[in-house]
Amino acid sequence: MKGLALWFARWYPRQWRARYGREFDALLEDANLNVLDVFGVVRSALEMRIKSTNVPRLLDMACRDIPHGYELESSVELPLEDGGKILFRSFYRQIDLGDSYVTLTHSSRGSGPAQTILICGKKGEVDGDFRTDETEMLVLQADGTVHRTEQTVKTWLKFDVMIDRVREKYRRGLSAEDIFGQMWSDSDNPLSS
């Protein structure tokens, strides 16, 4: 049983093996294993594999507090439907003046040209997890074109909660990988509450 379990333990994702592989193998060598334990290893390895391939991966991140707001830079590896991956890089700055705010996002996806989005918003009524804002948005494309729109938008307030959590974890010195891992965990993911 031990040999079988150790063989199936190779099914865990490479990242997981790099972190836990040696100690997990030591446990498999120490424990008295039965068939159910071997099935348990297979199931757990498959679960980890599904998790590791279906979610984006944060490669790098930097966060700075600035007067009335913050700046956040990140590089995220996004999985594609065909099994490939694409790199999404972004710089985000938010300045909040109480009744109004300004956000600047400069981002690029893969080898495509970067685009910059500037949003000025006036905060409106809050209803549950959403707030209705009056916004003016400028989209600056790399080819020199600029699109300007004014619209009333529903702002999802839990995004701010999520970013505050990320900033707090960053201040505590957690690595980008740990921060992202915790964002997807049940208790920290605002999508789950």
Partner: peptide, 17 residues
């Protein structure tokens, strides 16, 4: 607990801090 279940729990607990 089986080893797979134990290390699934350890992974989650460490991710939570």
């Amino acid at each position: 607990l089986g080893p797979g279940t134990l290390y699934g729990a350890i992974t989650r607990l460490e991710q939570h801090g």
